[in-house]
Write a protein that binds this DNA or RNA. Structure first.
Length: 568
DNA sequence: GCCGTTTTCGGCCCGACTGTTTTCAGTCG
């Protein structure tokens, strides 16, 4: 539903419609996406209860739910090819330029645009210079660096649904996702599902009949590949129940990890395949039922999927030195969240309620500070929010509330408020929201300045990337990690699926300096609180243990961490 | 198109940067 509203907003912008109308649809899209109820279960009246959804949008949503289409949207779709809308996904290219390209040159796909630039067809077009061409080509390269891969949340939500549907099929003994999804890679090329059944036929047939299937790529007895309507490929493999462990190990990968484990097998005169671990001489099956058995027979402890990248996990396993990875259950609270006081869509009360339901023992509200001008924060508003937080604190017996803020690191590393004001917060996150392209030396100096600030406890989304849209900022990572370890400043693992920042390699790098981390959701809505699973997955890929993550600590220890950095 | 009221219209996120332009439009956060 949110996607449809956003599409309509884009189409309004591209066709030069009322900018405020477009913005109204964008706001509604965000509100719907972040709404705590299942929108499909609401009638027009219920829909109007959602903030920023009025009569007109509620009616359109209701109509869509009833009939599957909305005439106004269909009309704009007929005028603007879908490819034109893809153009505005290119960084630096917005609706106005996209419309010029379509109207003047008939360009309606990213591919056509790139061709047109190379053929110099944009020359002489008003508002398009050589630098614009360069920027567009650079933007396209950025987008394509993610390839045809999708963000992990998109793949995982689909996989969860499919696993549920397939598990219900008669004869299905087990079903699970495998592949890069099970390893929690940040982007996913295709969804690999594994099922166990004596008779694979009902499962294979069901796969081809799923609602979401747009195309059947391959359909066999043991394996079926389909493409969903959203364009994602799903491979489903069925094995006999007794081969479950070996198959899951095989299909989880990574390829490099599997090569290592098969080598180990070979050295022991064994052969490892998706059907089991076999004795080479006799051909007899040794083990196959569980992953644990397979690893154990190879002389290894079970290796968590998030480590299976051949990045030292096999050696660590052989030495008995695998890290005791943190899990979502270790997280005692979220330390970076927003409310509708700034750009969130849920109220303070809703956020706190939702956090309490997750069983947290503490929870920090960290709305944006004033220097991010679009958020219109003020000292008064922040202090008034603090009053409310203090009043609410204690109403949830098992969850304490912390009042913090997300500061804005300016080009010189300064933050929004003077020390006297910062001292009033329970903790502060500080993040880069601008000046992404400073030269390395200045970028590093800027970040170090913020890290040295005695009131900055967490650096939020430290490298400020957005997957497929914006590259990481260029900084001296060693200098940053050293400073964080020395000053007692945590680095965030931001759990938003298009950020996942720090990412796995940098986490591995940083922890060698003894850096502490905070795994936060950066929630702008109650539904975002659950995104924490992506941050936890990323943290596991970075080999993090609970001891290194400040929001697994008891509150007293967390408070001591904040206090230790502040002047006495 | 939504919202709030100084209610049935008028304001809506503000500022900066970039590139293309001669004074500003488009894009972004």
């Amino acid at each position: 539903m949110a996607g449809l509203l956003q599409e309509y907003a884009d189409l309004i912008s591209i066709t030069g419609g009322d900018a405020y109308k477009a913005r109204a649809y964008e706001k509604a899209a965000r509100a719907v996406a972040g709404h705590y109820q299942d929108v499909a279960q609401l009638d027009a009246k219920g829909l109007r209860q959602i903030p920023n959804v009025g009569r007109s949008i509620a009616d359109k949503v209701a109509e869509y739910l009833a009939s599957g289409s909305v005439p106004e949207i269909e009309e704009l779709r007929a005028r603007i090819p879908a490819g034109v809308r893809q153009l505005i996904a290119i960084p630096t290219l917005g609706p106005k330029k996209a419309n010029v390209l379509y109207q003047e040159l008939g360009i309606s796909s990213v591919e056509e645009l790139v061709d047109a630039i190379h053929a110099e067809k944009l020359r002489g077009l008003k508002g398009f210079g050589t630098k614009t061409e360069e920027n567009i080509l650079h933007g396209v390269r950025l987008m394509q660096s993610a390839g045809d891969r999708v963000l992990i949340n998109v793949a995982l939500e689909l996989a969860d649904e499919l696993v549920e549907e397939l598990s219900a099929v008669t004869g299905c003994v087990r079903c699970s996702y495998a592949g890069s999804l099970r390893r929690f890679r940040e982007t996913i090329g295709d969804v690999d599902l594994l099922a166990a059944a004596e008779d694979p036929e009902p499962l294979m047939r069901t796969v081809t009949e799923l609602d979401t299937v747009a195309e059947v790529i391959a359909h066999g007895q043991k394996k079926t590949s389909v493409r969903t309507r959203s364009g994602l490929q799903v491979d489903v493999r069925v094995v006999a129940p007794e081969a479950w462990g070996a198959a899951l190990q095989y299909f989880t990968g990574s390829k490099a990890h599997n090569i290592r484990t098969r080598e180990i097998a070979v050295h022991q005169k064994l052969k490892l395949s998706e059907y089991g671990l076999f004795d080479v001489d006799s051909g007899d099956l040794v083990v196959s039922q569980t992953e644990e058995e397979v690893y154990r027979r190879l002389g290894l402890p079970w290796i968590p999927p998030t480590l299976r990248e051949d990045r030292g996990e096999v050696e660590a396993a052989q030495r008995g030195e695998l890290p005791d990875l943190l899990t979502e259950q270790d997280i005692k609270g979220d330390l970076h969240t927003h409310t509708d006081l700034t750009d969130g869509v849920s109220t303070l009360e809703e956020m706190v309620e939702a956090a309490a339901r997750r069983g947290y023992s503490y929870y920090a509200i960290t709305d944006h500070a004033p220097n991010l001008y679009m958020q219109r924060m003020s000292d008064e508003k922040m202090l008034a929010q603090r009053e409310r937080v203090r009043e609410m604190d204690g109403k949830h017996r098992r969850m304490r509330l912390l009042h913090g803020t997300e500061l804005n690191i300016d080009a010189d590393g300064e933050v929004d408020w003077p020390p006297e004001f910062l001292a009033g917060f329970d903790l502060c996150v500080a993040s880069v929201h601008s000046y992404f392209t400073l030269p390395r030396e200045r970028q590093t100096r800027r970040l170090l300045k913020a890290i040295e600030n005695p009131y900055v406890n967490i650096i939020g989304h430290p490298l400020a990337r957005q997957i497929g849209r914006r590259p990481e900022i260029d900084v001296d990572l060693d200098a940053v990690f050293e400073a964080c370890a020395r000053t007692g400043t945590a680095l965030e693992v931001n759990s938003f699926a298009d950020r996942l920042d720090l990412r796995d390699e940098h986490i591995m790098h940083a922890r060698r300096y003894g850096v502490k981390f905070a795994i936060d959701s950066d929630s702008h809505s109650t539904v975002h609180l659950g995104y924490l699973r992506y941050g936890v997955g990323t943290a596991q890929r970075g080999w993090l243990t609970a001891a290194e993550v400040i929001n697994t600590w008891p509150l007293t220890k967390l408070r001591a961490f904040v206090r230790a950095k502040r002047p006495r």
